[in-house]
Design a protein around this nucleic acid. Structure first.
Lengths: 253, 253
DNA sequence: TGGTGTGAAAGGATTCACAGCC
DNA sequence: GGCTGTGAATCCTTTCACACCA
């Protein structure tokens, strides 16, 4: 899960639970797909299946937003898309800068999912002078020297760090000093930021490591488990019921 | 974040809490850095700071693994690295395949964090015949037609999907049929898998949306908050300029 | 003394189950 | 009859605070 450190004064007492916020984008994606197919209404059961959660959770999540459904009928797709978009702040345009245009930075610059959701890549920044001026995803790369000016000229408040780990903290400090208050960090390092700045991280190798943990467990299902304390590991046959269930938090990783 | 519908019989096997498992890679990374600096021991306070968590949580986490510390002293760095690696299953080699060698797939193939953690990119697979044979990160791309053979020949149990959303489920089905039991999904879609298969997802735009939510809150700190924070009397207003330009929500690579 | 290990308390998140409304 | 909205129960996670010991 990603992480949002800076849990300062608190998670806004009268706000939406963090776990719910993390699922809103999921619902929005599913709703957008329904909208494109011109589906007018959807039940909590159907939408939950499309989003990969269970319906009770979905209804509870929506209850934090308000009463947007109709008993006996379901939810109006278009209306919900609008309400969730507004709640997430996606009805406005968010200029974003990406710092570190290596393989990953280029992938992010080309990522269509940004533009389609209210995000606009305002600038690409890299420390390599040789990159300067070269267009990536149609946007010319600018040099790190101009970072502060770029942030201010574009009114950027969200920055994406895709640099090597060693450069991340320094880039982070400069972004924050220039006015950025939200950072998405892909560098495998912990960033220190002042209060009021949100950081979420995505670490590709961490996700794989978590998978490896469960994979290992499956392998040792009936074979001698790791070592001590053998897991009762019964057959792989969860008495689980429903279609799905689960989805921890996460946040992201 | 980033977790998907893992249908494991759950962590119920008397094992380590899922939240703890998700943090072990974090500790491991911090410990590895200490190890490289030849630091012999570390206290829970110091290690927690390096990993970005608080010390009580760290100690509780470690208590699930066993008593590996020394009161009054701290933890032996090398020993802890080993114990956590073993717990995560990183003392063995995990061959991984990456399917979908677009920008993101290439970035993943080049990602150093994999190799350094017990993961080995066994093969790169793409549906584009023009890609076949072209080396990416020193590994020749192979065609999707050979997917099953590749999985079996290399004994792969972990697959990474970096294809467009439209192709993800199909690729997933083939991976699972060929024997893959853990999947890391970068495609913005919900994957359906049979019991016993774990899926974790990473969605770049979801992370940004969560940041946007918090960013919006900061902006409206004392300014007029959203608009109608209360039950809107003017329901049915889906038109209102719509969510946003709504570009085709298709995928990148 | 200094720092681990851990019961117990507190806080969240998820699930249940059903009242209430269309 | 069908489906939402939500209190109540349950489960999981985090935090506290202190016993215990090298």
């Amino acid at each position: 899960m990603a992480t949002g450190r800076t849990h300062r004064p608190a998670t806004r007492s009268r706000g939406i639970p963090e776990a719910t916020v993390a699922r809103l984008p999921l619902y929005l994606r599913a709703l957008t797909a329904l909208s494109e197919r011109s589906v007018p209404t959807v039940s909590s059961e159907e939408l939950a299946a499309a989003a990969g959660v269970n319906s009770a959770k979905l209804r509870k999540d929506f209850s934090y937003l308000g009463s947007y459904g109709t008993r006996g009928v379901g939810y109006d797709v278009e209306y919900l898309v609008y309400q969730i978009s507004r709640e997430l702040g996606l009805t406005q345009d968010w200029p974003v800068v990406i710092v570190g245009i290596g393989n990953l930075g280029a992938a992010l610059a080309n990522y269509g999912g940004f533009a389609s959701r209210g995000f606009r890549v305002a600038a690409l920044i890299d420390a390599d002078p040789a990159m300067a001026g070269k267009p990536v995803a149609g946007i010319p790369v600018q040099h790190t020297d101009d970072l502060e000016r770029i942030i201010q000229d574009n009114g950027v408040s969200i920055g994406v760090i895709a640099t090597p780990a060693g450069a991340a903290q320094q880039v982070c400090d400069r972004l924050v000093a220039a006015g950025v208050t939200s950072i998405l960090n892909f560098a495998p390092t912990v960033l220190n930021v002042p209060d009021g700045v949100d950081v979420r991280k995505v670490d590709l190798s961490i996700e794989l490591q978590i998978l490896a943990f469960h994979e290992q467990r499956k392998a040792g299902e009936e074979a001698a488990a790791a070592d001590t304390a053998v897991a009762p590991a019964a057959r792989r046959q969860p008495a689980d019921k429903g279609p799905d269930g689960d989805v921890p938090a996460v946040m992201p990783a």
